[in-house]
Amino acid sequence: MVEEPNAEGGARSLMEIDWNVLSKQWSDSNFRIGTVMKFIKKPGELFTSYRTIKPSFTIIKQGQGVLLLDTHTYGLQPGTIVHSCSDMWLKAWNTGDEFFECYRVLYETSLMGNPHMQETYKHYQVTIGDSPQIYTILEQMCEFSSQGDIQSELQVKTLFYHFLNETRISSKKLQVNEHRVMIEETMTYIHLHIQEPHSLFSLASRYEISPKYFAELFYKVAGVSPINYIIRYRINIAEKMLLSTNASIREIGKSVGYSDPYQFSKIFKKYKGVAPSDLKSGHGIVGKRM
């Protein structure tokens, strides 16, 4: 997942970062990898404080910490990467009760002066989860970076491409898992609150994301839009009640979220191909499956 700080200094989802756009920008840019370093610090030890000259990636392998970029705060823990810009005040320290271990990759790129290609020049946080292959790549980058010859510089640049690709893959895998959990939780919420009015905005606001993005995620997991899912679930429950209970059509419609019996009958017939009154009286045949 990719995140940026919110106004309170915490982190929120940054949906406008597009991995396809970001990958293309890196492939089209001229860049040079600077120093690649590994830090190991004791509990509570301030391990860096300076004004940034170059953009960089900070990749956390072990421990807990905090990183400040001007007034923006990022929590540091294993499986997170923070990208920082140049000309920012950077301050970071270990906040846990164990040793803190991280890598830092400094670089220069031709994209820094291009206003149309600024994805690489934002400060943000990426969550990658457990990705041991990324740490292996970083160890190799540290080794080649310390040698200082042209061949080693080329090796570091090649490894950097691998680092970006593994970061993209790990982040997207984690996103898919997180999105599936979120959508499945939403489905359960809908089932438990079938009588309540639901809207795309109300469902998306439970996770503090935009309705458009929520609808995209829901469709990827469920195969239908959130509103269609709600309607189908309600109508399927109503069908079972019509066939198995003595409740009136008005009562059944109200129990699944439709206080207006006319609206309920209209929607039921649209989705099932038969009016609820005909189905209940035994004259209808359900011709549609959802």
Rank of each mutant, 00 (worst) to 15 (best):
E3S: 13
A7M: 13
A7Q: 06
E8T: 09
R12S: 08
L14S: 08
N20Y: 08
N20R: 12
L22Y: 10
W26S: 03
N30W: 08
I33A: 02
G34P: 01
I40S: 13
Y50D: 07
R51A: 03
K54D: 06
S56F: 01
S56N: 04
I60Y: 05
Q62G: 03
G63I: 00
L69F: 03
D70Q: 07
D70C: 02
Y74G: 10
L76Q: 05
V82S: 01
H83A: 14
A92G: 02
W93R: 02
T95K: 15
E98S: 15
R104S: 14
T109I: 00
M112F: 05
P115D: 01
H116D: 14
Q118I: 07
T120L: 08
G129I: 04
S131V: 08
Y135G: 03
I137W: 04
E139C: 07
S146H: 15
V156L: 04
T158K: 10
F160D: 01
T167C: 11
V176L: 11
R180E: 12
M182H: 00
E185L: 05
I190P: 07
S205T: 07
R206P: 05
S210Y: 03
E216Q: 14
Y219A: 15
K220V: 05
V221Q: 05
V221N: 02
G223M: 03
V224I: 13
I227R: 07
I227Q: 11
K240H: 15
K240P: 03
L243H: 07
I252L: 05
V256I: 04
V256H: 06
V256Y: 07
G257Q: 01
Y258V: 08
S259W: 01
D260Q: 04
Y262P: 04
Q263I: 07
F264L: 05
K266Q: 12
Y271C: 05
D278K: 12
S281L: 12
G284C: 00
R289C: 11
R289F: 08
